[in-house]
Simulated assay, not measured.
Amino acid sequence: MGQTRYEHVTTKQTLNRVKAERMPFDWSINPYRGCGHGCSFCYARGFQSFIGMGYEDEFQHHIFMKMNAAEALQQQLTIAAKKHEYDLEAMRRSIGEVTIGTATDPYQPIEGKAEITRECLKLLAKYRISTNITTRSPLVMRDLDILTRMEDVSVNISLNTMDAAVIRMLEPASPLPAARLETIHRLSDAGVDTSLFVAPVLPLITDAEDGIRGLLTSARERGAVYAMISLLRLSRDVKKWYLATLKLHFPQLVQSYRELYSQGAYAEGDYIRSFKAMAALLLAEFKLDKRTAEMAETIPSLPRRMPEPSKPVTGKELMPEVEQLSFPF
Protein backbone atom coordinates (compact mmCIF):
# COMPACT_ATOMS: atom_id res chain seq x y z
CA MET A 1 0.00 0.00 0.00
CA GLY A 2 2.99 2.32 0.52
CA GLN A 3 1.96 5.75 1.82
CA THR A 4 0.10 5.93 5.13
CA ARG A 5 -3.24 7.69 5.31
CA TYR A 6 -4.18 9.38 8.59
CA GLU A 7 -7.89 9.94 9.06
CA HIS A 8 -9.21 12.21 11.80
CA VAL A 9 -12.27 10.84 13.60
CA THR A 10 -14.30 11.73 16.68
CA THR A 11 -15.20 9.36 19.47
CA LYS A 12 -18.18 9.41 21.81
CA GLN A 13 -16.19 7.97 24.67
CA THR A 14 -12.52 7.31 25.29
CA LEU A 15 -12.80 5.06 28.34
CA ASN A 16 -14.22 1.71 27.29
CA ARG A 17 -15.37 -0.88 29.78
CA VAL A 18 -13.56 -4.23 29.56
CA LYS A 19 -16.13 -6.95 30.18
CA ALA A 20 -13.95 -10.04 29.77
CA GLU A 21 -13.37 -11.53 33.22
CA ARG A 22 -9.94 -12.92 32.26
CA MET A 23 -8.60 -9.41 31.63
CA PRO A 24 -6.67 -7.95 34.62
CA PHE A 25 -7.92 -4.39 34.04
CA ASP A 26 -11.27 -2.64 34.09
CA TRP A 27 -11.11 -0.02 31.36
CA SER A 28 -9.16 0.50 28.16
CA ILE A 29 -8.08 3.51 26.13
CA ASN A 30 -6.99 3.25 22.49
CA PRO A 31 -6.25 6.71 21.04
CA TYR A 32 -5.82 5.24 17.55
CA ARG A 33 -7.29 2.49 15.41
CA GLY A 34 -4.73 0.68 13.31
CA CYS A 35 -1.02 0.83 14.05
CA GLY A 36 1.96 2.16 12.15
CA HIS A 37 4.26 -0.53 13.55
CA GLY A 38 2.59 -3.07 11.28
CA CYS A 39 3.31 -6.20 13.33
CA SER A 40 2.31 -9.19 11.20
CA PHE A 41 0.95 -11.14 14.17
CA CYS A 42 -1.00 -8.36 15.91
CA TYR A 43 -4.33 -9.66 17.22
CA ALA A 44 -5.88 -6.20 16.67
CA ARG A 45 -5.82 -6.87 12.91
CA GLY A 46 -8.80 -9.08 13.58
CA PHE A 47 -10.82 -6.10 14.87
CA GLN A 48 -10.66 -4.31 11.52
CA SER A 49 -13.71 -6.14 10.21
CA PHE A 50 -15.83 -4.48 12.91
CA ILE A 51 -15.58 -1.21 10.97
CA GLY A 52 -15.53 -2.70 7.49
CA MET A 53 -11.76 -2.50 7.12
CA GLY A 54 -9.24 -5.11 6.00
CA TYR A 55 -6.68 -6.90 8.15
CA GLU A 56 -3.90 -6.60 5.55
CA ASP A 57 -1.73 -3.55 4.84
CA GLU A 58 -4.71 -1.35 5.62
CA PHE A 59 -4.13 -1.99 9.34
CA GLN A 60 -0.69 -0.37 9.12
CA HIS A 61 -1.29 2.22 6.42
CA HIS A 62 -4.72 3.61 7.27
CA ILE A 63 -4.61 5.01 10.81
CA PHE A 64 -7.67 6.50 12.48
CA MET A 65 -6.77 9.27 14.91
CA LYS A 66 -9.31 9.99 17.66
CA MET A 67 -8.67 13.72 17.72
CA ASN A 68 -11.19 14.48 20.49
CA ALA A 69 -10.07 11.59 22.73
CA ALA A 70 -8.91 13.91 25.52
CA GLU A 71 -12.11 15.98 25.44
CA ALA A 72 -14.28 12.86 25.54
CA LEU A 73 -12.18 11.49 28.41
CA GLN A 74 -12.54 14.78 30.30
CA GLN A 75 -16.32 14.51 30.00
CA GLN A 76 -16.33 10.93 31.28
CA LEU A 77 -14.08 11.73 34.23
CA THR A 78 -16.05 14.85 35.12
CA ILE A 79 -19.27 12.81 35.24
CA ALA A 80 -17.54 10.19 37.40
CA ALA A 81 -16.21 12.88 39.76
CA LYS A 82 -19.68 14.40 40.20
CA LYS A 83 -21.14 10.96 40.82
CA HIS A 84 -18.73 10.51 43.73
CA GLU A 85 -19.28 14.09 44.99
CA TYR A 86 -15.70 14.95 43.99
CA ASP A 87 -14.24 12.38 46.35
CA LEU A 88 -11.43 11.45 43.98
CA GLU A 89 -10.21 8.56 46.10
CA ALA A 90 -13.67 6.96 45.97
CA MET A 91 -13.80 7.68 42.25
CA ARG A 92 -10.41 6.10 41.73
CA ARG A 93 -11.41 2.94 43.61
CA SER A 94 -14.66 2.73 41.66
CA ILE A 95 -12.98 3.01 38.25
CA GLY A 96 -10.11 0.62 39.01
CA GLU A 97 -7.24 0.28 36.53
CA VAL A 98 -7.19 1.83 33.07
CA THR A 99 -4.93 0.28 30.46
CA ILE A 100 -3.74 2.35 27.51
CA GLY A 101 -2.87 0.36 24.40
CA THR A 102 -4.95 -2.81 24.25
CA ALA A 103 -5.76 -2.69 20.52
CA THR A 104 -3.13 -0.30 19.17
CA ASP A 105 0.25 1.04 20.24
CA PRO A 106 -0.49 4.38 21.93
CA TYR A 107 3.06 5.52 21.13
CA GLN A 108 3.16 4.55 17.46
CA PRO A 109 5.03 7.04 15.24
CA ILE A 110 2.21 9.53 14.62
CA GLU A 111 1.85 10.09 18.37
CA GLY A 112 5.14 11.99 18.25
CA LYS A 113 3.29 14.83 16.50
CA ALA A 114 -0.33 14.26 17.49
CA GLU A 115 0.20 13.88 21.28
CA ILE A 116 -3.27 12.37 21.69
CA THR A 117 -2.01 9.78 24.18
CA ARG A 118 -0.13 12.47 26.08
CA GLU A 119 -3.26 14.61 26.50
CA CYS A 120 -5.22 11.60 27.78
CA LEU A 121 -2.41 10.74 30.18
CA LYS A 122 -2.55 14.24 31.65
CA LEU A 123 -6.20 13.71 32.52
CA LEU A 124 -5.61 10.32 34.10
CA ALA A 125 -2.89 11.93 36.20
CA LYS A 126 -5.15 14.83 37.11
CA TYR A 127 -7.85 12.51 38.43
CA ARG A 128 -5.39 10.10 40.09
CA ILE A 129 -6.54 7.13 38.01
CA SER A 130 -4.51 3.91 38.26
CA THR A 131 -2.94 3.56 34.83
CA ASN A 132 -1.10 0.84 32.93
CA ILE A 133 0.51 1.42 29.52
CA THR A 134 1.63 -1.18 26.98
CA THR A 135 3.90 -0.13 24.13
CA ARG A 136 6.82 -1.12 21.94
CA SER A 137 8.05 2.42 21.59
CA PRO A 138 10.75 4.55 23.28
CA LEU A 139 8.44 7.52 22.63
CA VAL A 140 6.81 6.76 25.99
CA MET A 141 9.91 8.35 27.58
CA ARG A 142 8.72 11.70 26.24
CA ASP A 143 5.98 11.62 28.85
CA LEU A 144 8.22 11.06 31.87
CA ASP A 145 7.26 14.53 33.08
CA ILE A 146 3.74 13.16 33.59
CA LEU A 147 4.53 9.55 34.53
CA THR A 148 6.83 10.57 37.38
CA ARG A 149 4.03 12.64 38.91
CA MET A 150 1.42 9.89 38.82
CA GLU A 151 0.58 8.04 42.02
CA ASP A 152 -0.13 4.65 40.46
CA VAL A 153 1.27 3.99 37.00
CA SER A 154 3.15 1.18 35.30
CA VAL A 155 4.56 0.67 31.82
CA ASN A 156 4.90 -2.61 29.94
CA ILE A 157 7.45 -2.80 27.13
CA SER A 158 6.67 -5.52 24.58
CA LEU A 159 9.62 -7.39 23.10
CA ASN A 160 9.71 -11.02 22.01
CA THR A 161 13.27 -11.40 20.67
CA MET A 162 16.74 -9.85 20.75
CA ASP A 163 17.13 -10.65 17.05
CA ALA A 164 16.83 -7.35 15.16
CA ALA A 165 16.53 -9.15 11.82
CA VAL A 166 13.44 -11.05 12.99
CA ILE A 167 11.94 -7.80 14.29
CA ARG A 168 12.39 -6.14 10.91
CA MET A 169 10.80 -9.03 9.05
CA LEU A 170 7.77 -9.46 11.29
CA GLU A 171 7.41 -6.01 12.88
CA PRO A 172 8.47 -3.82 9.94
CA ALA A 173 8.19 -0.41 11.59
CA SER A 174 8.69 -1.27 15.27
CA PRO A 175 11.66 0.03 17.29
CA LEU A 176 14.57 -2.40 17.48
CA PRO A 177 15.35 -4.44 20.62
CA ALA A 178 18.18 -2.22 21.90
CA ALA A 179 15.90 0.83 21.93
CA ARG A 180 13.17 -1.00 23.81
CA LEU A 181 15.59 -2.31 26.41
CA GLU A 182 16.95 1.18 26.89
CA THR A 183 13.39 2.36 27.44
CA ILE A 184 13.00 -0.14 30.29
CA HIS A 185 16.25 1.20 31.72
CA ARG A 186 15.30 4.86 31.47
CA LEU A 187 11.82 4.40 32.90
CA SER A 188 13.11 2.28 35.77
CA ASP A 189 15.83 4.80 36.55
CA ALA A 190 13.14 7.49 36.75
CA GLY A 191 11.20 5.43 39.31
CA VAL A 192 8.44 4.22 36.99
CA ASP A 193 7.28 0.64 37.61
CA THR A 194 8.36 -1.05 34.37
CA SER A 195 7.75 -4.56 33.08
CA LEU A 196 8.73 -6.69 30.10
CA PHE A 197 6.02 -8.35 28.05
CA VAL A 198 7.58 -11.20 26.07
CA ALA A 199 4.64 -11.25 23.75
CA PRO A 200 3.67 -12.76 21.58
CA VAL A 201 6.17 -15.61 21.62
CA LEU A 202 6.31 -16.99 18.08
CA PRO A 203 6.54 -20.80 17.92
CA LEU A 204 9.63 -22.10 16.10
CA ILE A 205 10.99 -18.55 15.79
CA THR A 206 11.28 -16.88 19.21
CA ASP A 207 10.32 -19.71 21.57
CA ALA A 208 13.80 -21.08 22.37
CA GLU A 209 14.59 -21.15 26.09
CA ASP A 210 18.00 -19.52 25.57
CA GLY A 211 16.45 -16.63 23.71
CA ILE A 212 13.81 -15.96 26.35
CA ARG A 213 16.42 -16.31 29.07
CA GLY A 214 18.47 -13.62 27.33
CA LEU A 215 15.48 -11.30 27.22
CA LEU A 216 14.73 -11.77 30.91
CA THR A 217 18.38 -11.26 31.83
CA SER A 218 18.56 -8.00 29.88
CA ALA A 219 15.28 -6.71 31.27
CA ARG A 220 16.23 -7.58 34.86
CA GLU A 221 19.58 -5.83 34.49
CA ARG A 222 17.75 -2.73 33.33
CA GLY A 223 15.36 -2.58 36.25
CA ALA A 224 12.25 -4.48 35.14
CA VAL A 225 10.27 -5.65 38.15
CA TYR A 226 7.92 -8.04 36.40
CA ALA A 227 7.65 -10.01 33.17
CA MET A 228 4.84 -11.74 31.34
CA ILE A 229 5.38 -14.42 28.70
CA SER A 230 2.52 -15.09 26.30
CA LEU A 231 2.22 -17.36 23.27
CA LEU A 232 0.99 -16.29 19.87
CA ARG A 233 -2.76 -16.39 19.31
CA LEU A 234 -3.97 -16.46 15.70
CA SER A 235 -7.57 -15.56 14.96
CA ARG A 236 -8.80 -16.45 11.47
CA ASP A 237 -8.01 -13.12 9.77
CA VAL A 238 -4.71 -12.63 11.59
CA LYS A 239 -3.65 -16.15 10.66
CA LYS A 240 -4.08 -15.43 6.96
CA TRP A 241 -1.85 -12.35 7.09
CA TYR A 242 0.73 -13.90 9.40
CA LEU A 243 1.12 -17.05 7.31
CA ALA A 244 1.47 -14.92 4.18
CA THR A 245 4.28 -13.03 5.93
CA LEU A 246 5.93 -16.29 7.00
CA LYS A 247 5.79 -17.48 3.41
CA LEU A 248 7.98 -14.50 2.49
CA HIS A 249 10.53 -14.77 5.29
CA PHE A 250 10.26 -18.29 6.76
CA PRO A 251 8.68 -20.43 4.03
CA GLN A 252 9.99 -23.63 5.64
CA LEU A 253 7.78 -22.97 8.70
CA VAL A 254 4.43 -22.43 7.01
CA GLN A 255 3.32 -26.06 7.03
CA SER A 256 4.47 -26.54 10.62
CA TYR A 257 2.33 -23.56 11.64
CA ARG A 258 -0.68 -24.91 9.79
CA GLU A 259 -0.35 -28.12 11.76
CA LEU A 260 0.39 -26.43 15.09
CA TYR A 261 -2.63 -24.13 14.76
CA SER A 262 -4.90 -26.58 12.97
CA GLN A 263 -7.47 -26.54 15.79
CA GLY A 264 -8.05 -22.79 15.76
CA ALA A 265 -6.56 -19.66 17.31
CA TYR A 266 -4.36 -21.46 19.82
CA ALA A 267 -1.42 -23.80 19.33
CA GLU A 268 -1.71 -27.53 19.90
CA GLY A 269 -2.26 -28.53 23.53
CA ASP A 270 0.94 -30.44 24.25
CA TYR A 271 3.04 -27.61 22.85
CA ILE A 272 1.21 -25.06 25.02
CA ARG A 273 1.65 -27.12 28.19
CA SER A 274 5.34 -27.68 27.56
CA PHE A 275 5.99 -24.05 26.77
CA LYS A 276 4.03 -22.73 29.77
CA ALA A 277 5.98 -25.00 32.12
CA MET A 278 9.28 -23.70 30.74
CA ALA A 279 8.10 -20.07 30.93
CA ALA A 280 6.95 -20.43 34.54
CA LEU A 281 10.32 -21.83 35.59
CA LEU A 282 12.17 -18.98 33.90
CA LEU A 283 10.01 -16.30 35.47
CA ALA A 284 10.50 -17.82 38.90
CA GLU A 285 14.25 -18.14 38.35
CA PHE A 286 14.57 -14.44 37.52
CA LYS A 287 12.07 -13.45 40.23
CA LEU A 288 9.96 -11.71 37.64
CA ASP A 289 6.76 -13.64 38.23
CA LYS A 290 5.35 -11.15 40.74
CA ARG A 291 5.15 -7.38 40.64
CA THR A 292 6.69 -7.25 44.10
CA ALA A 293 10.02 -8.45 42.72
CA GLU A 294 13.05 -6.93 44.39
CA MET A 295 15.15 -4.60 42.28
CA ALA A 296 18.21 -6.25 40.82
CA GLU A 297 21.55 -4.49 40.50
CA THR A 298 21.22 -2.56 37.27
CA ILE A 299 23.74 -1.62 34.63
CA PRO A 300 24.69 2.07 34.22
CA SER A 301 22.47 4.24 32.05
CA LEU A 302 23.76 5.29 28.65
CA PRO A 303 23.84 9.01 27.82
CA ARG A 304 21.38 9.60 24.99
CA ARG A 305 18.94 12.30 24.05
CA MET A 306 15.41 11.31 24.97
CA PRO A 307 12.22 12.27 23.10
CA GLU A 308 10.73 15.53 24.38
CA PRO A 309 7.16 16.85 24.40
CA SER A 310 6.24 19.93 22.40
CA LYS A 311 5.48 21.61 25.72
CA PRO A 312 6.39 20.33 29.24
CA VAL A 313 3.46 19.65 31.53
CA THR A 314 2.75 22.07 34.37
CA GLY A 315 1.55 21.26 37.86
CA LYS A 316 -1.60 23.25 37.19
CA GLU A 317 -2.53 20.97 34.28
CA LEU A 318 -2.50 17.99 36.62
CA MET A 319 -4.63 19.57 39.35
CA PRO A 320 -8.32 18.58 39.51
CA GLU A 321 -10.58 21.57 38.82
CA VAL A 322 -12.31 21.28 42.19
CA GLU A 323 -11.71 24.25 44.45
CA GLN A 324 -12.45 22.55 47.73
CA LEU A 325 -9.91 19.79 47.17
CA SER A 326 -6.16 20.08 47.41
CA PHE A 327 -3.74 17.47 46.10
CA PRO A 328 -0.07 18.28 46.71
CA PHE A 329 2.56 17.05 44.27
Rank of each mutant, 00 (worst) to 15 (best):
M23G: 06
P24N: 00
F25V: 08
W27R: 04
W27F: 15
S28W: 05
S28C: 12
I29W: 08
N30R: 09
P31M: 10
R33S: 10
G36W: 03
H37Y: 11
G38K: 06
S40A: 14
S40M: 00
C42S: 07
C42E: 03
R45C: 03
G46C: 05
G46W: 06
G46I: 01
Q48P: 06
S49L: 03
G52N: 07
G52K: 01
E58G: 05
F59H: 03
F59C: 10
Q60N: 04
H61Q: 10
H62Y: 09
I63M: 09
I63N: 08
I63F: 11
F64A: 09
F64Y: 15
M65E: 15
K66S: 05
K66V: 00
M67D: 13
M67R: 12
N68C: 13
N68H: 10
N68P: 00
A69Q: 12
A69Y: 08
A70N: 01
A72D: 11
L77I: 13
L77P: 03
L77R: 11
T78P: 03
T78R: 01
A80N: 11
A81N: 12
A81S: 15
K82M: 15
K83C: 10
H84K: 11
E85P: 04
Y86G: 09
Y86H: 14
D87W: 06
L88N: 10
E89K: 14
A90I: 00
A90N: 13
M91H: 04
M91P: 04
M91D: 01
M91E: 03
M91S: 01
M91L: 14
R92Y: 02
S94I: 02
I95P: 10
I95Q: 05
T99P: 01
I100W: 05
I100M: 12
G101S: 09
T102D: 03
T102W: 05
T102V: 13
A103D: 08
D105Y: 07
I110P: 14
E111Y: 09
G112N: 10
E115H: 15
E115S: 15
E115G: 11
I116Y: 07
T117I: 12
L121I: 05
L123I: 07
A125M: 01
K126M: 06
K126Y: 05
Y127D: 01
Y127F: 10
R128A: 04
R128M: 00
R128P: 00
S130W: 03
I133C: 03
I133R: 00
T135M: 00
R136D: 07
R136Y: 02
R136T: 14
P138V: 07
P138L: 14
L139W: 04
M141D: 10
D143T: 00
D143W: 06
D143P: 05
D143I: 04
L144K: 05
I146Y: 09
T148H: 00
T148E: 12
R149C: 05
R149S: 00
E151R: 11
D152E: 14
D152Q: 14
V153E: 14
V155F: 02
V155N: 08
N156G: 12
I157G: 02
